[in-house]
C-alpha cells in the first residue's frame, strides 16, 4: 500500500538548516532514557540470576505445553454426569461471586462513609479507616479463602466469606472516593433548608452516589466471578476445585471443557452486568 506513495524529494540538509530545533539531538533526554533502560536491564539480569531461571527447561516446557494443548482438543467432560457436576460447580461459583460482592458492598458502605473526608471530618477517623481498608486490600482473595477455610471448614461458604473480606477493602476505597467526588452544593442546600448533618448525607449525598456505587458493584460482580473460579484451589468451593483436580490428574480434555465453561460464564456475566450498568448510569465510563 505504501509503495504507491513516493516520498517527496526533499533536500534534508536545507530543511535541517531552516528548523534546527527539530533536528538538534537532545543528549539529556537520551541520557535519561539510556540510564532508565540500563536500570531496567540490570533488574532483569538480577531477576534471572536470583530466581535461577532454568533456560534449559524453557524449551522442553514449551514442547510439553504443546502436547498438553493437543491433548486438550476437543474439550470433553467425559460423561454427562461429569458435565452436570461441572455445571453445578459453575452455579456455585456464580453464587459465591454474587453473595460475596453484595456482602462486601453492604459492609463496606458504612465504612466508606467513615473514610470519606466530606462526611466525617475527623482526621484520626479518616486516617484509621483508610489504613485499615488498605490492610484488608493488601491481602489477596486466595489468602482470605485459605484463612476462612481454616475457620468454617472446606466448602463454598468459606469462599463467600473470603470474597466479602477482600471486596470490603476494595469497595471501601472506591466508595469513599466516589463520595468525596460528589458535588457539595446539594448537601449545603439541604443544610440551608434546615436539615441536620444526617439529612444532608441522606438527601444531598446519597442520591448522587448510589448510581455510581451500583455500577461499581456490578463491575465487581464480573471480576469476582473470575476470582471465585480460583478460590476452589484452596478448597473454598466452586469450579476451581474441579479445575485444580483435573489439572493434577492430567485429564486435559476435562480441563479444557471446564476452562471453556468459565470463559462462557464470565463473558455472559460481563454482558449482563455491562447492560445493567448502562441502564443505571447511561453510557459513560465507569470511574
Amino acid at each position: 500500500m505504501t509503495s504507491m506513495h513516493t516520498p517527496l524529494a526533499v533536500d534534508g540538509a536545507s530543511v535541517a538548516l531552516r528548523y534546527p530545533q527539530y533536528f538538534r539531538t537532545n543528549w539529556r533526554f537520551r541520557a535519561q532514557v539510556g540510564s532508565f533502560l540500563a536500570v531496567a536491564l540490570a533488574f532483569i539480569v538480577i531477576g534471572i540470576v536470583q530466581l535461577e531461571i532454568p533456560f534449559d527447561r524453557l524449551l522442553s516446557g514449551i514442547f510439553k505445553l504443546g502436547d498438553f494443548g493437543r491433548l486438550m482438543l476437543p474439550p470433553d467432560p467425559g460423561s454427562s454426569a461429569n458435565a452436570a457436576l461441572y455445571l453445578r460447580a459453575l452455579g456455585e461459583t456464580v453464587s459465591i461471586a454474587l453473595l460475596g460482592t453484595l456482602g462486601g458492598a453492604i459492609l463496606a458502605f458504612p465504612m466508606s462513609l467513615l473514610a470519606a473526608r466530606n462526611v466525617v471530618a475527623n482526621k484520626v477517623v479518616h486516617f484509621l479507616s483508610r489504613r485499615s481498608l488498605d490492610t484488608v486490600r493488601g491481602i489477596d482473595t486466595l489468602i482470605w479463602a485459605l484463612i476462612w477455610v481454616s475457620v468454617v471448614g472446606l466448602g463454598p461458604f468459606a469462599g463467600v466469606l473470603a470474597l466479602i473480606c477482600s471486596d470490603f477493602g476494595s469497595f471501601g476505597k472506591l466508595f469513599s472516593e466516589a463520595i468525596e467526588a460528589t458535588d457539595k452544593r446539594a448537601v449545603e442546600g439541604v443544610r440551608a433548608a434546615g436539615g441536620s448533618h444526617l439529612h444532608g448525607v441522606r438527601f444531598g449525598l446519597l442520591p448522587q452516589v448510589v448510581p455510581v456505587l451500583a455500577s461499581q458493584v456490578l463491575y465487581y460482580f464480573e471480576s469476582n466471578t473470575r476470582s471465585a473460579t480460583i478460590i476452589g484451589i484452596v478448597g473454598a468451593g466452586g469450579i476451581g476445585l474441579q479445575l485444580a483436580e483435573q489439572i493434577r490428574v492430567l485429564e486435559w480434555q476435562k480441563v479444557s471443557f471446564i476452562i471453556l465453561l468459565i470463559l462462557i460464564a464470565v463473558s455472559a456475566i460481563d454482558w449482563i452486568s455491562s447492560r445493567l450498568r448502562f441502564a443505571i448510569i447511561g453510557r459513560r465510563a465507569v470511574t
Binding site: 516446557g61 514449551i62 498438553f68 486466595l142 470463559l263
Partner: peptide, 28 residues
Amino acid sequence: LEFCRTVPEIVFALIFVLAFGLGPLPGV
C-alpha cells in the same frame, strides 16, 4: 487477548508447573 485475560493467572501457573517444573519460572 481476551482469553489470556479471562483465565486467572493461578490457573496458568497450575498448568505451567506441570510443564516447566516447580520454581519461579512458571510463576513468571
